[in-house]
């Protein structure tokens, strides 16, 4: 996998050997270095402030929100309150939708990883007619927009009774997660040294055992990247759930979306709700930076 290629950490050692320069050149360097710093700090603020705004908005009462901006908390910190959060967590619709998000995301992630790994292994190490063509076909499906499937699958699910069910949404996410999963895992599995597999085979391991005991553990980094990528993809999805769920099965994104029409009036639900929905992705992001970055780099086109 890409783990090595695109990790955030440490930029390559900045200035190696520096040739001696004139005083003027060094002065110019100092000035431009200062400018670069100022520029990056300003940009960093641009990137941070919107999120901070959401966080602080979620910690103010709706009355304060309708009369002044969130930045007034810096002068009047007494505005801060967890009321919106406690009210939100007493709101059955919201807590149910959070649970639904988990019920959708976890199976959709596990299924994609398992099914994708099975197929990836088959494409990498088994021999059957037309193997490479089949694999090419799967790769071709990588860029198919989900929008293409909305209407056909809505009608299909309607006919077989899956419409509105959590299982239906899970299936849909699994289907559209698979091309990337198969692509990523096949390429990773293909790099497993042949000798390892042969040795295990000589020890008498069957295909399934080989897959579970050798291939899956060796595929750890790729599986982690894929899992994190798929998890965040499904967790953050709104469109698919918007089409295929009904009240009672909708995840947090859809539940919040229904409140957006009256944005100002519902800010006490929207701001804390959005923040709660962000917590898990942010935790995943900070905890698994490496895997996340490589997963995103590999799969962002979805």
């Amino acid at each position: 996998m890409t783990a090595e290629a695109g990790v955030l950490p440490t930029a390559p050692a900045a200035e190696p050997v520096k040739a001696r320069r004139s005083l003027g050149a060094r002065l110019a360097e100092v000035v431009s270095g200062g400018l670069v710093r100022v520029f990056l700090i300003v940009v960093g603020l641009f990137w941070l402030v919107p999120t901070i705004g959401l966080l602080l908005s979620s910690l103010r009462s709706p009355q304060d929100m309708s009369s002044s901006g969130w930045w007034t908390v810096f002068t009047k910190p007494s505005q801060l309150t967890f009321d919106s959060y406690s009210k939100l967590l007493e709101n059955g619709d919201i807590t149910d939708s959070l649970l639904n998000t988990i019920l959708i995301t976890v199976p959709a992630t596990v299924l994609v990883v398992v099914i994708g790994a099975l197929a990836g292994y088959a494409f990498a190490w088994m021999d059957f007619p037309g193997r490479d063509w089949w694999f090419l076909g799967v790769v071709g499906l990588l860029v198919v927009p989900v929008q293409v499937a909305l209407i056909p699958i809505a009608e299909l699910f309607g006919k077989i009774g899956l419409f509105g069910s959590i299982f239906g949404v899970v299936l849909f996410h699994t289907g559209f997660g698979l091309p990337f999963a198969v692509f990523l895992l096949r390429n990773f599995f293909a790099e497993i040294p042949r000798e390892l597999l042969e040795a295990a085979r000589l020890d008498g391991a069957g295909e399934l055992r080989l897959f579970a005991r050798v291939v899956m553990p060796l595929g750890g980094p790729a599986i982690a990247s894929l899992g994190i990528f798929q998890f965040l993809w499904v967790w953050n999805d709104m469109l698919v759930a918007l089409v295929f769920t009904k009240s009672g099965t909708q995840p947090i994104t859809v539940a919040l979306q229904t409140q957006v029409r009256q944005f100002g009036n519902n800010i006490d639900v929207l701001a804390p709700g959005a923040f709660i929905s962000m917590v898990i992705p942010l935790v995943v992001f900070f905890a698994f930076q490496r895997q996340f970055v490589s997963g995103v780099m590999a799969g962002a086109v979805k």
Binding site: P50, T51, G53, L54, L232, W235, N236, D237, M238, T253, L256, Q257, V260, L270, A271, A274, F275, S277, M278, P281, L282, V284, F285, F292
Partner: peptide
């Protein structure tokens, strides 16, 4: 890392 919904609200 965050959803477009959250970014939208932001």
């Amino acid at each position: 890392a965050i959803s477009m919904l959250a970014a939208g609200i932001i």
